[in-house]
Nucleic acid binder design. Structure first.
Lengths: 327, 327
DNA sequence: TCCTGCATTGTGAACGCTCACATATGACGG
DNA sequence: CCGTCATATGTGAGCGTTCACAATGCAGGA
């Protein structure tokens, strides 16, 4: 920066002013500085900027690192929203779902001088961490649990699950089975809750829960195998599309057709879900909106609002051909 | 840090030594410092560290931001490999595939003081940029083009495509059609090349290329529709699994069965590819290995090796039930 | 002519760390 | 009892910015 200043014949402060386009610089001077910058190929140093200024305009994000569709979309949407608001995102990936791992990830973010932390890891472990440890700065959990972490942005999973269940009941199914996500994940829990609520609201028997899914198609297949053995099962709601695909595969392998024998609904609406056989009925989440709301909350709390809150993002059911009236 | 030093009754330098566990600190002293750190909840400031030291041990990564499976896996693997080597990763996401966008993304990385740049965007635009602009620091392109960007790590797409094509020919198909990825992407280009090479090597007619795919299932479906109209088509190799799913859907909708009427092979081996109907034969890439090699190259060039190079990562064909002998 | 006030530019310190070097402390042999 | 060396610790500068404030220039009004 000193070189640029020398070359343009101004002080370092003027260069700084041009760089941050602050008022009070004559156009001619600004131009001269800009030229010096270009000629020297000067590039400002983020570290020095952050060190010197109080605000970093940086949000730290921790994700769960297995590139699931959801978290990935959230991250992308968050990045967009952050840029829009003049914030930078720094991310770190959690590998082992432990208290210690969470701590390390957050520590890493804090070292980078973030102004807020966003945890896109809606898992029990992380929730507990966020509840117990006061980081001294705004901490938002995406898809968390409002009752535990006050700053939470999320999709209305309960409602989404209820809609999916209702759809199946309206088609004429007596009841609906659920292939849940792994225990400990609040999304999994919320979807179970929505499913159960709807069944109870309509006075239907609540089948035993098939835990043990881990979001993977493989685990869906396992669940599907046991589901297929029970001829009473005519409708299945799965906690995500990948598991739904596994379930469908298992049903097919067991000689049961979808949707004639069994209807299946997923959650996420993956791009490929419309192209499998049969095209999958699924609950779609608006990740862009979620990202915007999450960023909005962060901004509000950063602006001093003590406990801002936002509504859950609604979901929509995309009806395709994996669901039908029971035979 | 000054506070910690005061509390422990040592100098700031000793604190620094403890923090970076450098030799020459008495165990008792180190413990005292550590205790002061814990009590004060002290956390070191990354910006200050980077500013003061010459090396940042940070690698900048630019990705193409639509969360495709491949790039996502590469990023994850790269992060693992980087951590292993004591490097940090900073990432930025390219939204618009333009020269200008690329420049902005790279600029952003450079501001952060990265020691090397890794471009996980194997697109023409980026390749041209990497070739023409000398960033003044090591620039590696993942899945790039060795002939253009000297520092390149990649999967052997040509070989992978050839294997897929060969598999279909060996089953007895006269020739193989190809649903390619979008023009401008070097992976798409390489897969076309492998496919064509294999056909020519075996003296088979090379069907006209169906460009226009954009990696999405939807574009695969479009390609599949026109493929389905041609009764001569008995084998199709798709540039990725998502397009393969679209193709299969289109064939099914047109009344043609897979693999009885038409065999289909994909590329990527998505987790769900084993669970669709029929389970998809696909070419699997070893992303972890790719990440390791990429990081290895970066380390070697950083260590002073002028033009290190590494072999392409081999692929494996996973044969499932979407391919069979022609009827 | 001189003063006031605004627009523009400059100055020096501070941010929190690492680096290179200087200094203190002990153990040991002569 | 002293010098020597290694080990342990301290000192001060400097990294490249921003921040708060000071200084300069110039126009217009009294």
């Amino acid at each position: 920066m000193a070189d640029v200043a020398a070359r343009a014949g101004v002080s370092h402060q003027t260069v700084s002013r041009v760089l941050n386009d602050m008022p009070g610089v004559r156009a001619a001077t600004a131009e001269r500085v800009q030229q010096a910058i270009d000629e020297l190929g000067y590039r400002r140093n983020l570290s020095a900027r952050l060190l010197a200024s109080t605000r970093s305009r940086t949000i730290g994000v921790a994700t769960w690192g297995n590139s699931q569709f959801g978290p990935q979309q959230v991250l992308l949407a968050l990045d967009d929203a952050a840029r829009q608001s003049g914030y930078r995102l720094v991310t770190t990936t959690l590998r082992t779902m432990t208290e210690q791992g969470t701590r390390a990830a957050v520590e890493e973010l804090l070292e980078q001088g973030v102004e807020a932390v966003v945890l896109v890891i809606p898992h029990e472990t992380v929730l507990r961490f966020a509840t117990e440890v006061d980081l001294g700065l705004p901490t938002l959990v995406v898809e968390g649990d409002l009752s535990r972490t006050p700053l939470t942005a999320g999709v209305d999973n309960v409602e989404g699950a209820a809609i999916a269940t209702r759809h199946l009941l309206e088609l004429g199914h007596t009841t609906v089975c659920h292939v849940a996500g792994p225990p400990g994940w609040s999304e999994a829990r919320a979807r179970v809750e929505g499913w159960r609520m709807e069944l109870e609201a309509q006075g239907r028997p609540v089948p035993p829960l098939r835990w043990g899914g881990d979001w993977s198609p493989r685990s869906g297949y396992e669940a599907g195998r046991s589901l297929a053995r029970d001829p009473e099962v005519t409708a299945v709601f799965c906690a995500n599309d990948q598991m739904a695909m596994g379930v469908i595969a298992a049903l097919r392998d067991a000689g049961r057709t979808v949707p004639d024998d069994v209807s299946v609904v997923g959650f996420d609406d993956l791009p490929e879900s419309a192209y499998i056989d049969p095209p999958l009925t699924s609950v779609r989440q608006d990740f862009d909106e979620l990202g915007r709301r999450a960023m909005g909350l962060v901004e509000r709390v950063l602006a001093g609002e003590p406990r801002p809150s936002a509504d859950l993002v609604p979901t929509t059911l995309v009806v395709r051909r994996s669901t039908a009236a029971p035979r």
